[in-house]
Nucleic acid binder design. Structure first.
Lengths: 168, 168
DNA sequence: TCGAATTTTCAGTAAAATCTGAAAATCCTA
DNA sequence: TAGGATTTTCAGATTTTACTGAAAATTCGA
């Protein structure tokens, strides 16, 4: 496989996998494009490379910047904005964990906590079963939340190092 | 909040969160319904409870069974099929990890491996950058794959126990 | 083996998510 | 500070995904 073909393949696959994870395909493709580009790109270059409209590129780049996966970069002598992606996969992973924790896990914890406060006869088996189920999901989510917290603060070498030890 | 209200809330929230994870809302709602039900339910009961068509319930129940999250249950003296959900959240989590590993991570590893075989001048900086990026993603995914392997084989108490120790 | 009960399939429809493109807003430089 | 360059917005169009419902297939008791 030639380099250009491989790049295309990477972009296309990255987009396809992203869809399965509830991530917008275009956002993932722009991310992939920037990941395999050696230099920052402008809106127009991305529009051209992925055949997207200006509005679409604009929207998705903004979102990538919000996620902390892509950075605005100033190119000397250029008025237009340029963008480049964080290449350190460990940093990328942490940014994703951080965002998903904030956007999804935390709101879920809130809901689960709220649901624990269901009122009624403590001896009612229906109620007991409900609080039992919701409670165990809550505990699980709480533990996942803490784990993510650690991952976010961890340093790569420490993380993999102790993970490997842990698995032995 | 009363029990019935709490159940509804749980089902609705579970569906909403699932969407963000690339999981069909209806599938998640059926799962939630069964999670908070103390007895197995038939197609008709689920149709009624969630206001869904027969075809939809059938399709999504089948998928839940494939994921290993829901089981067909025989109810004495009933010809119809009944279903109930696995309530042990640890088992649920492992089933999900197992499926997503198989459906998503493994195919991705395959693609990444393929992409490593890109041909060209080893000294070309463009090529070097590409293999560098793809290679590091590949390593990361490989490690994630191994971690999932361990999680799947782990027993809950061992898992959380050693995870907690690890985090200290 | 028949036929009523139940489940499955899937073409057509509906809903949700995403994208476009042009107009409006903003930003710079001369 | 005027005006071209660039970015942003968003209503409507398009695409994708999910759902319905009725017909076909299957199951099972008598």
């Amino acid at each position: 496989m030639k380099l250009e073909e491989a790049r295309q393949q990477f972009i296309q696959s990255w987009g396809a996998f992203a869809t399965q994870w509830g991530i917008n395909k275009t956002m993932a493709q722009i991310h992939a494009l920037l990941l395999v580009s050696t230099r920052p790109m402008s809106h127009d270059e991305m529009m051209e490379a992925l055949q997207l409209s200006r509005g679409n590129v604009n929207m998705n780049i903004r979102e990538l910047v919000n996620w902390g996966l892509v950075q605005r970069v100033v190119v000397a002598g250029e008025r237009r904005e340029f963008f480049s992606a964080e290449k350190d996969i460990w940093k990328v992973a942490r940014a994703i964990v951080k965002e998903r924790k904030k956007r999804e896990l935390e709101p879920m914890l809130q809901v689960l906590e709220e649901l624990q406060r269901v009122e009624g006869d403590k001896k009612d088996p229906e109620l007991k079963a409900f609080t039992e189920t919701v409670g165990s999901i809550g505990k699980f989510a709480k533990q996942a939340d803490r784990s993510m917290e650690v991952i976010m603060k961890a340093d790569e070498s420490w993380f993999w190092g102790s993970l490997v030890k842990w698995f032995k």
